[in-house]
């Protein structure tokens, strides 16, 4: 059952990710990104990280993709126009493709990873209490830094998107 769900979500994630890359229409690409995130959240659930799956859906699929869609509609952009292939770029593509294929083949054939059994290792990511404990003891300083970062990002976005009268000469 777990294997079946994993296969389902893995294929779904990869197909929709390919959709993000290959879609000509920007809105369709954003929708594919949404589906990819749903697939990754499914994989998180398969890894017993329920809270992270929930946050991924809430923050990414809820907020980030919606923000992308807003900007797409605001800017009203056209899709890609592919430039013609030049001779040099054809060679470069062939080399890059060969390198990627070599990497994938060597990953599947030669990689030696330990195979820990999932039954023996405890699924710590499933327990909410542990997140809270870690965030407020070991990672207390990073939490503060992240809060500060969010504040700075908010101020930065306001400065970037607001039109100031005196700043028009800065280009």
């Amino acid at each position: 059952m777990a294997q079946l769900l994993f296969n389902l979500f893995a294929v779904f994630t990869l197909v929709t990710a390919a959709g993000v890359v290959l879609n000509k229409n920007v809105v369709n690409a954003a929708m594919c990104l949404l589906l990819t995130l749903v697939g990754v959240a499914g994989l998180f659930v398969a890894l017993n990280a329920y809270l992270l799956a929930f946050i991924l859906l809430l923050v990414y699929a809820g907020a980030v993709v919606a923000l992308f869609l807003f900007i797409i509609m605001l800017l009203d952009t056209k899709g890609d126009q592919r430039p013609g292939l030049k001779h040099l770029s054809l060679i470069a593509r062939a080399i890059a493709l060969a390198l990627v294929a070599g990497g994938v083949v060597s990953f599947f054939v030669r990689s030696r990873l330990p195979e820990p059994s999932l039954g023996a290792t405890p699924a710590l990511g499933a327990e909410l209490k542990l997140y809270a404990y870690q965030l407020f003891t070991t990672y207390l300083l990073p939490v503060q830094v992240i809060g500060f970062l969010l504040l700075i990002a908010m101020l930065g976005v306001i400065v970037l998107s607001k039109k100031f009268d005196g700043l028009e000469d800065i280009k």
Partner: peptide, 21 residues
């Protein structure tokens, strides 16, 4: 994180999601 039975990777993902937003 899941296969090693540790918590650090999960908490790190927490921070990555925040920074990504």
């Amino acid at each position: 994180s899941r296969f090693n039975g540790t918590m650090d990777g999960n908490v790190f993902v927490f921070f990555i999601l925040t920074v990504a937003a």
